[in-house]
Nucleic acid binder design. Structure first.
Lengths: 251, 251
DNA sequence: CCCCACAAGTGGCCTTACCATGTATCCTAG
DNA sequence: CTAGGATACATGGTAAGGCCACTTGTGGGG
């Protein structure tokens, strides 16, 4: 018996082949951004398939953020400039569908925020520094006032830190995980008296983080950012989970 | 003139509304992973639309990695467990269209691998340790042999580290970014004589990482993992990008 | 008891068709 | 000659109906 390695004989879906052809053509630059493909009716003769099949392929490409429909004469799908939107959606989908424990999200957030703060300390510019300063000020002002104002300022501060890190991936994944966490702890923040103390604490810590970034102290910025999140959520974790956190907070 | 804030009057595409409904139902956990939706023919009466419209919506959900078609009696779209595949595709798409720099991806990988290694050092169990040991051994054996064997062992090693970190988000994100990077450096690894040296280096480094994890030295594991990736890709980065890397490698 | 053939249901794909809308052209009024 | 608008055409969005290959479940025969 000759052992010959055969290749899989799975049927290749026709709409998928259209997606692949167009996708590689776009990613390789063969089809430049801003140009437009033939209309659905033209594509259906070019590929030799029916219109619904062409449309399914175009929908997939559209959901990948590669094209956008454009009606009218001289219309046709236009090739889009790549956007970070789909990447963020992928993160959200992954976090949303993965049945995640709070500890995993907290760990991930610590990792992201810590690194982003380290990078921001080295790479920030004046405008970003000003934005951070204003956000910290707003946090302090809102610490005893409306919870949503405070949350907005808090979010704006971290948003700027992510931006100052100069890394889109950090920013997008940070947004995704922060959003998921916010959902989980909403009740925790709103329950009465303890709220103000927590907010004052957060304001003080973020203030310290800001100063570390301002003096470009990368190590301190990372340490503060990591510790802040660990403290913020430690009361909601088990002993074992707190122990694991120690490994990445560097404390 | 009364300034009343009107809401956008853009027509909402029907297939898009189906996508949104199903998406939120899945992401909120209302439809559990592993279960299956009604068949296309049932969905088309539930939503009161035609089958092509249902199919377009299902294609989009499929391209997001949320569902998978399943033919046959008692069939219907099944809700998938989260995968790193779509996230990796988003990375590759953004790299391909040059809206994401290699440096950002490398930074992200350093952050993820470093933290995963720190966690793995603290949290690993015996089975995972054995798997890592075997992978490292296979790497050494394949260092002078087939490139794909080596890559497989290398991948298996890091896979186990991610798993040992006990954090699904880290694992999925790590897989995604590693997959995207692997695509980019494939040529780099295969080009002739330098290949073996690179592979021997990698094997030696991973071996050191393994030992650090084995003796539960979290700090060392993180340092080695970060340095390994920084070294591996430093030749593909600019001077300024290498400088930013220093902020997160802790070197 | 096991195995296999058959029936039913599913996704994949096609054909045809209609509608609302966006674009371009041309024709008219100034 | 120009500016404006009405008209015709092409585009995407959606619907209805139908065929095929394949997967699955089940019941009948060994």
């Amino acid at each position: 018996m000759t052992t010959h390695s055969f290749t899989q004989a799975v049927p290749v879906l026709t709409y998928q082949r259209i997606v692949e052809q167009v996708e590689t053509a776009i990613l390789s630059g063969e089809i430049p951004v801003g140009s437009q493909l033939s209309s659905e009716r033209d594509l259906m003769v070019q590929f030799g398939v029916s219109r619904p099949t062409v449309r399914e392929a175009l929908r997939v490409l559209q959901s990948m953020g590669l094209i956008e429909p454009k009606p009218g004469t001289r219309g046709g799908p236009v090739v889009l400039a790549p956007s970070s939107e789909t990447l963020g959606r992928s993160f959200r989908a992954m976090i949303g569908t993965a049945s995640l424990g709070l500890a995993e999200l907290v760990q991930f957030r610590i990792v992201l925020d810590g690194s982003a703060s380290e990078l921001a300390a080295v790479l920030h510019d004046d405008a970003q520094l000003a934005a951070m300063r204003s956000a910290v000020t707003r946090m302090r002002e809102a610490a005893e006032g409306d919870a949503s104002d405070f949350a907005d300022a808090d979010l704006a501060f971290h948003e700027t830190v992510w931006e100052a890190s100069g890394n889109q991936v950090l920013r997008l994944s940070g947004q995704a995980v922060a959003g998921a966490l916010r959902e989980l702890v909403r009740r925790d923040l709103e329950r009465g008296a303890a709220g103000n103390a927590v907010k004052l604490d957060s304001a003080r810590i973020d203030s310290g983080l800001f100063e570390a970034i301002e003096r470009r102290d990368s190590a301190a910025a990372g340490r503060i950012a990591r510790g802040a999140i660990a403290d913020r959520f430690s009361s909601m974790l088990t002993e074992r989970e707190r122990l694991a956190l120690a490994a990445i907070t560097g404390a």
